[in-house]
Amino acid sequence: MTQTSADLRAQADAASAHLPGLILSAERLAAMIAPGAHGLRRAGPGEDFWQYRPAHSGDTARSIDWRRSARSDAQFVRDREAQTAQAVGLWVSSGQGMTYTGGTDRPSKLQRAQVMALALAMVLLRGGEKVGLLGQQARAGRIQADRLAEHMATATPRDTDSDAPQILTLRPNQRLVLISDFLGDPSWVGDLLDRAAGMGVRGVLLQVLDPDEETFPYSGAVDFRSLSGGMRHDSRDASGLRQAYLARLAERRDWLLQRSRAAGWHFGHHSTDHAPAHALGWVYQVLGG
């Protein structure tokens, strides 16, 4: 059956119905984080002091820091740290597992991840940096935040419980932020970090979980099913699984932390029953480190 333009418009309106709410939530969250250019840790036309260095033959008298030089027999130049726009790529998992929430009083993992990703983009864009979704062109400017919000609002969750970014879309010297629950097969994480390390790509892995996934509060007979319907486990005594589950979760987090550190990345985690500002501020700070 051929769709009319009215049908297409109605579907588009329904798909983007929560777009204003997403933007408003992200703007409120972004307002809690102070934007600023990220230093590149090399001499350049920035504003922040980096280091003193001995003066060279090509340095002018104006560039000499005479106060510092007066304390020794040599002349010193006060270097400032170069600051420039960075291309930052964002990726939010769209697996079915991300749509989970254990209570009506808190957002799904996907909703929280999207708000945090968009808020981070807004902060970076206000700081003059270029931002884009992984695999798409990174752009600067306020309108880019609107593009990102529209894409997130209209994105359709995958049929599978988890998904993975396209590793071949990595570009040298990017900064990446990958947000997921990281509860599925983690092999892609190791492959991506290995490739990233070889390309000079640095970034952050942020695990977002529901508090029920953090504490496993179940007891008695529980029928566990994945949201995609691909997995099922019928337990007669759910509380008897708690310690094994928590041990596996701790093991997964330790693996993610160690692999991240080995690649020069950062790993953090966030629970949807906590305010997102602290986690977002941490991501912003380490992204510029």
Rank of each mutant, 00 (worst) to 15 (best):
L241N: 05
R106M: 10
L256A: 00
G198Y: 06
A250K: 07
R248F: 10
A221R: 09
L241M: 15
R9T: 15
S228T: 06
S16D: 12
Q166E: 15
E27C: 11
A117G: 07
G21K: 04
Q3P: 11
F49Y: 12
A197L: 12
I23A: 07
D194M: 10
G21F: 06
D159N: 15
E213A: 06
L246T: 05
L133T: 01
G184N: 06
L148Y: 01
K130S: 05
E213V: 11
R41F: 10
S108C: 09
D7H: 11
L246P: 03
A140M: 06
M32P: 00
L22H: 00
A140Y: 00
Q83N: 11
N173F: 14
L287C: 07
A119F: 02
T154N: 12
R253W: 04
M116V: 03
T101E: 07
R139T: 04
D181A: 04
P172Q: 13
G97K: 02
S228Q: 04
L125M: 12
D73V: 13
H274A: 15
V177M: 03
V131C: 08
D65H: 08
D237R: 15
Q137W: 05
E150S: 10
V92P: 00
S180W: 00
S180T: 07
P45L: 09
H269S: 11
Y52S: 07
T160L: 06
S25Q: 09
S93M: 08
P165A: 11
W91R: 01
L192Y: 01
L118A: 07
R195H: 09
G184F: 01
L209N: 03
T101A: 14
S180P: 02
G198N: 08
A275S: 11
G220H: 08
I143F: 12
R41Q: 13
D254M: 10
I167R: 07
L206F: 02
L22A: 02
H151T: 13
S162Y: 02
I179T: 06
G58D: 08
R62K: 15
D73G: 11
E251M: 09
T60W: 08
S25L: 01
T104Q: 10
I64S: 05
E47P: 01
R53G: 08
Q207H: 08
A155H: 05
S16E: 13
A14C: 09
A164N: 03
R253K: 14
R67P: 05
R41L: 13
L90I: 09
A113N: 03
Q111M: 06
L168W: 13
G97A: 11
T2S: 15
A31K: 05
A43T: 07
R202E: 05
R232E: 10
R126W: 03
L40T: 11
A196L: 11
A10V: 04
Q111L: 08
P172L: 12
L24I: 14
P276R: 01
G264T: 10
R158A: 12
L24W: 11
F216L: 04
R158W: 07
R106Q: 13
Q243R: 14
R112D: 02
Q96M: 14
H270M: 05
Q166I: 11
S235A: 14
R232L: 09
G229T: 09
